[in-house]
Design a protein around this nucleic acid. Sequence first.
DNA 1: AATGAATGAGCCTTCATTCAT
DNA 2: GATGAATGAAGGCTCATTCAT
Lengths: 217, 217, 217, 217
Amino acid sequence: MAQDKVKSTLEEPTRQQLLEAAGAVFAEHGFRAATIRQICQRAGANVAAVNYHFDGKAGLYAEVLRYAHHCAEERHPTGVALDKSLTPERELELFVHAFLQRLFDEGRTAWLGKLMSREMVEPTTVLDSVVEEQIKPNSQRLQHLLRRLLGARPSVERVRLCEMSVVSQCLFYHHCRPVISRLFPGFDFSTAALRRLAAHITQFSLAGLRRAKKERV
Amino acid sequence: MAQDKVKSTLEEPTRQQLLEAAGAVFAEHGFRAATIRQICQRAGANVAAVNYHFDGKAGLYAEVLRYAHHCAEERHPTGVALDKSLTPERELELFVHAFLQRLFDEGRTAWLGKLMSREMVEPTTVLDSVVEEQIKPNSQRLQHLLRRLLGARPSVERVRLCEMSVVSQCLFYHHCRPVISRLFPGFDFSTAALRRLAAHITQFSLAGLRRAKKERV
Amino acid sequence: MAQDKVKSTLEEPTRQQLLEAAGAVFAEHGFRAATIRQICQRAGANVAAVNYHFDGKAGLYAEVLRYAHHCAEERHPTGVALDKSLTPERELELFVHAFLQRLFDEGRTAWLGKLMSREMVEPTTVLDSVVEEQIKPNSQRLQHLLRRLLGARPSVERVRLCEMSVVSQCLFYHHCRPVISRLFPGFDFSTAALRRLAAHITQFSLAGLRRAKKERV
Amino acid sequence: MAQDKVKSTLEEPTRQQLLEAAGAVFAEHGFRAATIRQICQRAGANVAAVNYHFDGKAGLYAEVLRYAHHCAEERHPTGVALDKSLTPERELELFVHAFLQRLFDEGRTAWLGKLMSREMVEPTTVLDSVVEEQIKPNSQRLQHLLRRLLGARPSVERVRLCEMSVVSQCLFYHHCRPVISRLFPGFDFSTAALRRLAAHITQFSLAGLRRAKKERV
DNA sequence: AATGAATGAGCCTTCATTCAT
DNA sequence: GATGAATGAAGGCTCATTCAT
């Protein structure tokens, strides 16, 4: 009905409001420190709503992590059908740049980064499914690209090590930001800076990959 | 009394016991989730002891972080006077290997890694002094080494980027361990594995550095 | 609609389903501990159904108690027109046996016993009408029988005391079951056991009644 | 110190206050319905005191049951060394009278009766130890007396049945009080009434016992 | 007649801190 | 120097009830 339409545009349903509020609060304070009162107040909902809709704080958290993934994926699709005519070198640069952009995006996408950082320090049961459904596909896509760059028949081990060398250089800027900002006060993560960062990481890694290509195994 | 003397030699003083207990508990559960009762029980002390000796939970935490640094430094001195006859390439490998060993050490040294990981996610005021007193000296020592490898007059920016490329590859294995163990179940961090890891990171990075050496700026 | 008709013949109406479910749940958990959700889930009804049909939890409870009486009465009619040719001694045995059977029956009849036990500990307003409509008639029937056994003109007081001596011996096995099963682990309440129990209580009581018959007052 | 003495007479220690308050509240409302706020307010203590001293509501309840037993035992010792010159008949009357007095005593002793009634309806784990430590000894003392009255060699079963016939007649007045007061409004439990009650139960039971003595087995 | 969503009061428990000793 | 008792704030959760449909 038209009425429904009006309602759905004016006032988001409670469940959705809770997800939004919880995403922000969990990202900022972590699972433990976040209080459902805080979340509910922000969502304009009753404290009991969380238990009604998500069966408790833990259930809400699990749903939030899935929701954050969904939002991030929608905004920065990782499965971009890249132009087939691109060289693998160019493709790597695009991958690195996209990765960095995602890590330093604002809004709902930022939740994911913060939530995942917290998961690294204190994994919950949700991490299992996140790795399986989200991270593994990305990992395999990157490995496929690296194999093209490594040529011949690189060992599984070598591909993994190279993959981690590439990924680690991207994640570092997100993960160690508190130290970076204290160590190099001028360091920023503007659009232009991210582009320079992507260029460095790509060049550095391509050289490393070429070196690895020569090695046996 | 004589009795007191005996006690102080046989049992560690309460203050020390608290530091030890708190280190383990904070590392395992984090600042928030750790409870004073848990720490005091482990230390065989009264619940009020923390407030008495450290003026509250926060004070104890700050002291623990300093203590953990002290212990780690004692066990894995970073300022080792390396043999001057070593090539910078060999020196880099030794640095990387030592870094990895420290990250995957057990015991009190492990606290530091875990505590620092938590600081990355939720920095406290203690981080400022830790960066200044502990991390910055290490950073400069590494930059000095990298300048020898980059030759000519690399820009400050370039040295920093290369430094982070090297460091990130080491930290990654510690920081993302929960994902690695889920993604690559066989992956281990035995002594032998750490040596292979150090070799890969060094070779990969040396190639990247040589590439960077050719670039201007 | 025809569909409704089918539904109403195949499935019990919601109201009835709620009574059945509530009977079981109240008997098992008591008024306070029983939850409306538990009852409604068991009845396959909505959480609001109880308020709709019975105007709240208390209203449902009152209705359940009446319903349980109705069911128990249907199954073990207490007003059985006993064969006039029976001796009062034999009649007493039949009464005692029937009472015990009712107390240890299963199914809906069991609800009543459990609910009444709970009423003894924490009487509700419903107890007034239950005593008036259900217990008093039974009491008077038993008193009539006892007067035949006591002969002459026993005082009201004496009849009452004898009545309670008889009834108490029956109720005890139901009421103190938790202690009995702990004190005498082998004690059971099988059909045969109930018959032996009835025999003992009857003989014991008949002796007591004969003794009372001799007393004045 | 004198000061301690003053304190201990003027203000009871918190733990004791809690036991007193909890005894009254648990007896009146039952374990579930009783709230620790209610108890703590009555005891003039903080809500956290219950967790501190008794490790939660359940722990407090267990302790209260033990405390109530202790108080009842102190006030109505069951192990009274009866005059050896008494006949078993007279001894039975004293036992029955003492039992009734205990059941209808006021104050702390009343708690025990109410708490035990509730345990019959909804046994907790505490019941096990209560039966073992409190009820079983009493049971055996009564059985010893009954054997003297039954003479010869009565079967275990017969002694048990007679024991329960005696005990049930006493407990009934306590347990079914709500029904009794509705059925026989004039019935009271004054000191005089309890004496008459004891006389009736004793005479009634002695006749039953003499009858049982004649039976085989 | 019946329901899914939402509410607000209340409960038990945990915890860092303080106080008197 | 060190402690056991006690505190008050706050948190997650449960539950009977109500409301709009």
